[in-house]
Amino acid sequence: MADFKIILSEPETGRSYKVDATGPAAGALIGKRIGDEIDGGILGFAGYTIQITGGTDKTGIPARRDLPGPARRRLLLSEGVGFHATMDGERRRKSVRGSEISADFVQINAAVKQSGAKPLAEYFSQPEAAAE
């Protein structure tokens, strides 16, 4: 089974959190596409709606939203995800991955679209160490 690191950003506060998805949570993400909205309950965030915004595979190759399927391809790019031109008119052939999440992904970027009753900061707060 695949394991994912999910970088969950909260636009309201500007903070981002790292969530490890293993087992059924990771299995629920396979086959989803960039731009899809998922229920936060899958990851343990009841009442939240989360949108997938991007990701990278095990070699660091980014996923593009406009490329269908999960496969890796070499495209001639002039702008966008995977290439940023340094000169006007510059183009390069770069490896990019399709928008469908597969087991080859390692990191998935996501953003909160609708918040739940409990703030995200409470899910990630460290428990205070007991004073001895």
Results as ranks from 00 to 15, higher is better:
1 M>D: 05
2 A>N: 12
8 L>H: 04
13 T>K: 14
14 G>H: 02
14 G>S: 05
15 R>P: 00
17 Y>P: 04
18 K>M: 08
18 K>R: 14
19 V>E: 06
19 V>G: 00
19 V>I: 06
25 A>W: 03
27 G>T: 04
28 A>S: 13
30 I>D: 01
35 G>T: 03
39 D>C: 00
40 G>R: 00
40 G>F: 05
42 I>W: 12
48 Y>A: 07
48 Y>K: 14
49 T>C: 09
50 I>P: 04
52 I>T: 01
52 I>P: 03
53 T>S: 15
53 T>D: 05
54 G>Q: 06
55 G>M: 05
56 T>C: 10
57 D>E: 04
57 D>R: 01
62 P>G: 05
63 A>T: 06
65 R>Y: 09
66 D>W: 03
67 L>G: 00
67 L>A: 02
71 A>G: 11
71 A>F: 09
76 L>W: 02
77 L>W: 01
79 E>G: 02
80 G>P: 00
80 G>M: 05
82 G>L: 10
84 H>A: 15
84 H>G: 10
87 M>A: 14
87 M>I: 06
89 G>T: 12
90 E>M: 00
91 R>E: 03
92 R>P: 01
93 R>Q: 07
93 R>H: 07
94 K>W: 07
96 V>G: 10
97 R>Y: 08
97 R>T: 02
97 R>G: 03
97 R>H: 02
101 I>A: 06
101 I>L: 13
101 I>T: 04
103 A>I: 06
103 A>N: 12
106 V>C: 07
110 A>D: 01
111 A>I: 15
113 K>C: 11
116 G>Y: 03
117 A>F: 15
118 K>L: 13
119 P>N: 08
121 A>L: 14
122 E>K: 07
123 Y>E: 04
126 Q>P: 01
128 E>K: 14
128 E>P: 01
129 A>Y: 10
130 A>E: 13
132 E>H: 10
